[in-house]
Computed example of a mutant assay.
Amino acid sequence: MIGRINIAICDDEKIHVELLERYVHNWAKKNNIKLGIEFFHSAEAFDFSWSMDKRYHILLLDIQMPGINGIELAKRIRKSDNLLNIIFITAIPDFIGEGYDVSAINYLIKPIEEKKLYECLDKAVQKVPKKEKTILIDVEGETIRIKQEDIIYIEAFSHTVDINTVSEKYATRKNIGIIENELEQNAFVRCHRSYIVGLKHIKRIGKTDIELDNGDVIPVSRRLYTNTNMAFIKYFRGEIN
């Protein structure tokens, strides 16, 4: 279990917010969980807070709200964040099918049953990474959180850096040296002045290039070959985690 679970409640009805708050505190006390809890009375308010700081692990999200509804907010979130555990709260079950598109934990129908909320929170907290490492980058004015284990390699250009992951590529102006310092030391290696590679994604190392498990081939410099090869061998022997 991680040290603290941060939960956000987004609902425009005060009576439901107060009920959820009481249930969540009861659940945390029962499970001896340190809790951080915040409240938002509109999707826009949560969206602004989340865009500035992705500190939340679980979001209890009402669907029917003025302005942006819960489904629309969840779709926005999923464009750049697959880690946030979303539990929908709704008075009617009409939107249940759309939850599959945003990987929701579950739907809870109002009035909320405390036991069912506990079951959803138990499931959500199991999905919260215990020691998962992430990095934050700025992409066209948005802050994106990337799981380090998903990074295949990083390539630096004159003014930008491409972060190639298992699902997509992100272009940022963040300096490759700064990114390198934020990465898990035993999981990555600098193989070239313009490249950092994730050790778990290496398929083959040659004298001049590296083949990756996604089929890409990147260069390895003569100066860094020995260090890169040794890091690769130690990683797959289990000598480093």
Rank of each mutant, 00 (worst) to 15 (best):
M52H: 11
N32H: 13
G70Y: 06
V197G: 07
M52D: 10
R223G: 00
A231F: 03
N164Y: 12
R222S: 14
K207P: 00
L117H: 00
D94K: 08
D94Q: 11
W27L: 05
N229C: 12
L121M: 04
V220Q: 05
K110V: 11
K34E: 12
Q126C: 08
K115L: 13
K115C: 07
I144K: 12
I178G: 01
D150W: 09
I9V: 14
A45D: 15
V128H: 02
H25K: 15
I77W: 02
P66N: 13
K115D: 15
H57S: 11
R78I: 05
M1G: 12
K79S: 09
A91V: 03
N106P: 01
L59V: 01
R78M: 04
V217H: 10
H41K: 11
E18H: 08
K34D: 13
F188C: 02
E180N: 12
D11H: 05
F46S: 08
A156W: 03
I154L: 05
L224V: 04
E72I: 11
A74R: 01
K131W: 12
I5F: 04
D138A: 00
Q185T: 15
S221C: 03
T208K: 15
A156R: 12
E119M: 09
C10F: 02
K115E: 15
D213Y: 03
L20R: 00
E113N: 14
I109H: 00
K110C: 08
E21M: 09
S51E: 15
I15G: 00
I68S: 03
